[in-house]
């Protein structure tokens, strides 16, 4: 009888401990996914060749947006695939306007996932895909704005139909991101650097950023009557082959995590 009681107690303790271990992963919080064109898009900037650029809309379409907890942390500089221990994804295709809001607007909320497991989401991946609905149908990126230099003013709309896939490590910036705590809300950020396309007059001309940027002068050169409305096929036929190739080479490098670079393909 005594043996049976001891056996029963041990069994109960075993089952309870298994239950406690299983329930240990029950702590949850909320993870938000933001997209950010930074002050370059919100406030405008001067290109490397002196064009003052203001953006009315920057439509970008995102799919398969996923944040991961990775250990060891994913290194985008390596050739290794991202291996997620915990994965959280947005399940739709999203077209966001990075220029939405005023000069001091917050990054754009793409989506959020509640009841996500706590922990540090130190890697993120997404795709830039062609939108299937307005306002950017058929394009993964549409840049609409005005460029001014001296007495010239050009209203431009540059439409990109290339698709890219990004795999990134941890956000690099003033604050660390992606740490979901019990009952709390954290965010991860998809960042786009548009100075990579147009260059930045405040950065030295021999800096890698300006060396590889195409600038705006080449776009101004193909504008007609103060207007430029082009897609990639038209750019290929109108720009010099050198300028077009620079644009093609630089477009995939737009995606970042804060200041951190991503692996793109």
């Amino acid at each position: 009888m005594r043996k049976r009681i001891i056996g029963l107690v041990i069994t109960v303790l075993f089952v309870v401990s298994i239950m406690l271990v299983s329930c240990g992963g029950g702590e949850v919080g909320t993870l938000q996914f933001n997209a950010n064109g930074e002050d370059f898009v919100r406030q405008g900037f001067i290109s490397k060749d002196g064009w003052s650029i203001d953006f009315a809309h920057v439509y970008i379409t995102l799919a398969d947006v996923t944040a991961c907890q990775t250990a060891p942390p994913y290194d985008p500089h390596s050739d290794n695939d991202m291996k997620c221990d915990v994965k959280v994804s947005l399940d739709k295709v999203y077209t966001v306007d990075l220029a939405e809001g005023g000069e001091d607007a917050s990054p754009i909320l793409v989506g959020e996932v509640t009841n996500t497991a706590v922990g540090h989401y130190n890697a993120i991946s997404w795709k830039m895909v062609k939108a299937t609905s307005e306002p950017a149908v058929g394009y993964s990126l549409v840049i609409v704005g005005t460029a001014e230099k001296d007495s010239q003013s050009i209203n431009f709309s540059i439409k990109v139909d290339e698709e890219y896939q990004y795999s990134c490590g941890e956000y690099v910036g003033d604050k660390r991101k992606g740490m979901v705590e019990e009952g709390g809300t954290a965010d991860v950020e998809i960042t786009f650097h548009f100075d990579h396309i147009f260059g930045d007059i405040e950065t030295p001309m021999d800096d890698g950023l300006n060396v590889s940027a195409v600038g705006f002068e080449c776009f101004a050169g193909i504008a007609e009557g103060g207007r430029l409305d082009v897609d990639m096929a038209e750019l290929q036929s109108k720009l010099s082959s050198g300028d077009y190739q620079m644009l093609v080479d630089i477009l995939p490098t737009l995606g970042h995590v804060g200041e951190g670079h991503c692996h793109y393909h």
Partner: peptide, 18 residues
């Protein structure tokens, strides 16, 4: 894991050292 971040003029990187 110790995390070390280096940033300058809009460029940055982070490394993780066990």
């Amino acid at each position: 894991t110790w995390d070390i971040q280096v940033r300058q003029a809009g460029h940055g990187d982070i490394v993780h050292i066990p």
